[in-house]
């Protein structure tokens, strides 16, 4: 456990994603630690998030607490499972220096950072859960926190991709093959590629992630509805979020 926390700490400090390593296409991140770390961090946020369902005045249920604790890390990891193949192909086509495993590790690292920030906001969510009964407010607050931590995770990813797609520093004379030609492209073209890959990933992961969240709902647990592990398939994330916003004002 201590080693796990140390690994997460080193990741947050950027020790595992040094620019020179990324430029060389190396990532020494321990994938197992990233997965377990993500599970623990996501669960801890889910625990705070699920308190609302467990403490609501009408029909409180501890099942919501357990369900949300499990669902938050699952949301991120399942989204990765669904999107990883396309993300990998996209980056490989753009000439990424990262191999299959390294690409997976990089994405796991971004998720771990995202979840670390989310977990750190857990006490704030817990505080608001215990001090408010407004369901729409809790929905909007949680979407806001997921959004903020997602932006930080994406900022990490964008910075990493910039280094991954950065031009190679001149070393010894090498045989000129396709990869070298790609590596020797003008820096602005390579950084454009990094940006394009990032944008592609952003769209794919963002859309799938939002819909995965919708499929796995309820996370907070509506006070008007009995507990269910999953709700019926209907509507989509955006419609649900705007409905919560409207109910907050009305």
């Amino acid at each position: 456990m201590r080693q796990l926390l140390l690994d997460i700490d080193r990741l947050l400090r950027g020790r595992y994603t040094k620019p020179e390593d990324l430029r060389a296409g190396k990532l020494s991140l321990p994938a197992r630690a990233l997965i377990f770390g993500s599970l623990i961090l996501g669960s801890s946020y889910g625990l705070f998030m699920g308190i609302y369902g467990a403490t609501r005045p009408d029909d409180p249920t501890v099942m919501q607490l357990f369900a949300t604790t499990a669902k938050v890390p699952l949301l991120f990891l399942l989204t990765l499972v669904v999107t990883f193949p396309s993300l990998y192909v996209l980056s490989a086509l753009a000439g990424s220096r990262l191999k299959f495993q390294e690409t997976l590790r990089l994405l796991l690292a971004a998720i771990a950072i995202n979840l670390a920030l989310l977990a750190s906001l857990g006490p704030v969510v817990g505080f608001f859960t215990l001090s408010t009964q407004s369901y729409p407010f809790m929905i909007v607050l949680n979407v806001l926190f997921f959004g903020v931590s997602g932006i930080v995770g994406l900022a990490f990813l964008r910075r990493a991709l910039r280094h991954v797609f950065a031009p190679k520093l001149p070393t010894a004379i090498e045989p000129v093959d396709a990869a070298t030609q790609l590596a020797n492209l003008p820096s602005h073209r390579r950084s454009d590629m990094g940006l394009s890959v990032f944008r592609g990933w952003l769209v794919v992961y963002g859309v799938v992630g939002a819909q995965m969240g919708w499929v796995l709902r309820p996370f907070v647990g509506s006070p008007d509805l009995p507990f269910t592990l999953f709700r019926e398939r209907e509507s989509n994330f955006l419609e649900g979020f705007f409905n919560a916003l409207l109910r907050l004002f009305s």
Partner: peptide, 18 residues
């Protein structure tokens, strides 16, 4: 302050200001 400190710790760490 106590409620906000965990998040502040993580933000400082991510920004390399630990």
């Amino acid at each position: 302050s106590l409620v906000c400190l965990p998040n502040f710790f993580v933000v400082n760490t991510i920004l390399g200001l630990r």
